[in-house]
Amino acid sequence: MDEGRRFVLRGAGATSALAAALAAGLLRPERVLAATWNKAAFAAKDPADALKSIGASDAVDSSDVMLDLPEIAENGAVVPIEVSSKVPGTTSIAVLIEKNPFPLAGQFTFMEGALPYVKLNVKVGQSSRIRVVAEAGGKHYSTAKEVKVTIGGCGG
């Protein structure tokens, strides 16, 4: 396996190694940032495994990670959430829906110029906590909020 792919697949701890490798000219940016999809993490069936797959088992609760969402969702097909991190040097934000069959919904990596911020719509299968994890300097910071999923209306 070539150097580029091995670095990207390793996850959390590789960030600084990645930067060093890039600086040393060992990796071409386009190849490093080519589409990779963390199959193992997305296939994890419980939140702990999902966190482990993204190297975030060490996540600590932090009020510097902000999660805004409606506490009641009229329908679980679309639950809008807004996430941001005030932790200096945040490089990524991951979103987990704890009671979903596969908790990891997404992970966003922020490069030079981007703010650690994302708004997205997620599917929530049943009332659940949504946990967001920010990564900064190889450490992980997290917060979670509960959303109650309901079914509205007369089925029409």
């Binding site: 009641i72 049943q126 009332s127 659940s128 509960e146 109650k148 999923v149 309901t150």
Partner: peptide
Amino acid sequence: VLLVAGAL
């Protein structure tokens, strides 16, 4: 009747 799954 209002049935709300989860925390309630």
